[in-house]
Amino acid sequence: MKSFVKGGAAALAIIAASQVGADEDANLIINGETEITVRADAPEHLDNVSTIYSGWVFRSDETQALQMDDFDNPGMIFVDQGRDSWVLAEGSEGKSCADCHNEPESLANVRPTYPKWNDETEEVRTIAMQINGCRTEQMGAEPWKYDSTSMLNMEALLSSVARGQVMNVAIDGPAQSMWEQGKELYYTRTGQLDLSCANCHEDNYGNYIRADHLSQGQTNGFPVYRLKNAKLNGVHSRFKGCVRDTRAETYAVGSEEFIALELYVASRGNGLSVEGPAVRN
């Protein structure tokens, strides 16, 4: 992969590959049957990257293996818990997800297209916002907190049934202005370390930042089960961690800024498979 370092990132001791034996040429097949596209030609809107890679390829052999079998993947515990709440009737209408959508598998084409413009509410909705839309508008139930356990369990369920499907987030039409806002944020340097998303995840993926093997920061594996905290992590919480690591004041989970950034970052992965709940370090 790439070995050049540029910009403010150089100050952070980013060094060229390979301390830990990550097998960047490995292919991911889950349960011996679901083929996952972990590298693909970059979508047309990307100027500086020709190939996009799933974060999976940057992980060590041991971490990669955890995602190759649903039983070894601890994230699947939370898919099971998501299935439990799928059939649980809640709210004033006494309805569960299953009452409208039958099996979660019927929504297999949902995760690849989110975040997505919603005509009725005239806003870009993340999948979390859409889930809460269902809860408040259809079920008459309380919304779940952004990146809460219940929400992440449900997002993990919707990702798991979409595994292998190709990420295809729309960036034109009414979503375009939000997408432009996200792109602007992606390239804006923040914090005392003066780093943008691009400094690490576009200029230096494949290199090491201290002992961390930098990925392209793709979102196709979210929500991800991280070895670090042994639970599911949402996209916005991860963004927050990244921004905090630049030593900046971060945007809030669920904020308009992070919704825009999620739309833009998701579109950078158009062409990769949905693989959540993925396993990362």
Binding site: I209, A211, D212, K228, G241, C242, D245, N281
Partner: peptide
């Protein structure tokens, strides 16, 4: 055991 760059 590696100490990561990104606590995230």
């Amino acid at each position: 055991v590696t100490i990561g760059g990104c606590g995230g």
